[in-house]
């Protein structure tokens, strides 16, 4: 077991390193650079040359990569933003990650239970209208692009706010950065309600794809499972349908569902880039989008790459451990 764990951790580290190196090199390979964005139509050739040298961009890219990894590894400092004067990227990310985490968790809380419930209903009434309706919605959920859905919802649901995390006139000194938690800790029910209202639309939009995927995978795993011998036996012994589904079939189908759900959590991070941009959600995704599109801020982009790679890799690690717990056969291998 320990050996397994060590192997998985090493795997995760290598994945992070490779991902960061790829982003680091790619962002420097694409045309344009942060200084062009800084100076716009008023460039100052001498100053630009000086800043290039100061940032070490005149050195070979692998040397730059080495220096960057050394700096991060030894000090944990991700560097200073190139687009935003005198701002440390680590501090910037510290403020934004909780916003993304809150949004992602909210989407998960919606997506996984609802997806599993829809999958169960569809599997139980296979080929009847609940199945057809559920799977039609699931197909629609996967197919409709997030930004399109966001724009449509925004037009229809006019009673919910469509921007930011709180009304402009409201603010709260952060503790954890998760507004739902902080507002309760600080005893501010008004902030809590406002935060939930702001969270609803983006969370629903972000939840659609994982919810649909989870519903489909739950359905297909359960359909297989419900046709198997041990289920028939259980039914023959008089267990009720729901008992059989919830106590016998679902736990057995849990491994593929966990697998897919886990992957979806990772994908939520990429969905967050779009959702956060459409809803002006001040999180990691929006920060990354503006660092890439507008500013070409190398430092911000590579810092986001590290954070996302670490999140992804740790998530996978946790999932690997969850499989072991769910399915003893993996433990034995």
């Amino acid at each position: 077991m320990i050996g397994y764990l060590v192997r998985r951790v090493l795997h995760a580290l290598v994945t992070i390193l490779v991902a960061v190196a790829l982003v680091f090199i790619a962002v420097r390979a694409i045309p344009g650079n942060p200084l062009l964005a800084r100076f716009g139509q008023h460039p100052d050739a001498d100053e630009i040359a000086r800043l290039r040298a100061e940032n070490g961009w005149d050195r070979p890219v692998l040397v730059q990569l080495g220096q960057f990894l050394w700096q991060v590894g030894t000090t944990g400092d991700l560097g200073r933003s190139l687009a935003r004067t005198n701002v440390n990227v680590t501090d910037e990310l510290r403020k934004r990650i909780p916003a993304t985490v809150e949004l992602t968790l909210a989407a998960l809380v919606l997506a996984i239970p609802l997806g599993i419930a829809a999958g169960i209903v569809a599997a139980v009434w296979r080929n009847r209208w609940p199945d057809r309706l559920g799977m039609f919605l699931a197909l629609a959920g996967v197919s409709v692009p997030i930004f399109f859905l966001a724009i449509c919802l925004r037009e229809v649901v006019t009673f919910l706010p469509t921007s930011q995390r709180l009304p402009l006139t409201m603010s709260l000194e952060p503790l954890t950065g998760l507004l739902l938690v902080d507002s309760l800790l600080r005893g501010r029910p008004d902030v809590f309600v406002a935060a939930v209202r702001h969270l609803l639309l983006p969370a629903v939009v972000l939840a659609t794809i994982p919810m649909s995927v989870v519903a489909r995978i739950t359905r297909s795993s359960l359909v297989d499972m419900l046709a198997s011998d041990f289920i028939r036996t259980a039914r023959a012994k008089g267990a009720s349908l729901w008992r059989v589904v919830l106590r016998h079939a679902l736990p057995t189908a849990a491994v593929p569902i966990t697998n897919i759900a886990g992957l979806q959590i990772g994908l939520l991070l990429s969905g967050a880039v779009l959702t956060e941009t459409v809803f002006d959600w001040p999180g990691l995704g929006r920060y990354l989008a503006s660092a890439i599109i507008g500013d070409r801020d190398y430092v911000a982009i590579q810092a986001c790459a590290i954070v996302i790679a670490v999140l992804f890799a740790s998530l996978n690690l946790v999932l690997d451990l969850v499989y072991v717990w769910l399915d003893p056969r993996i433990r034995l291998q």
């Binding site: 724009i151 925004r154 037009e155 006019t158 706010p161 469509t162 921007s163 930011q164 402009l168 941009t277 459409v278 002006d280 929006r286 503006s290």
Partner: peptide, 17 residues
């Protein structure tokens, strides 16, 4: 306030936000 999308600025203006 930064509101990146044109469509959102239009909508929020119409709503008086």
């Amino acid at each position: 306030v930064p509101v990146r999308e044109n469509a959102t600025r239009v909508q929020r203006l119409s709503r008086g936000e």
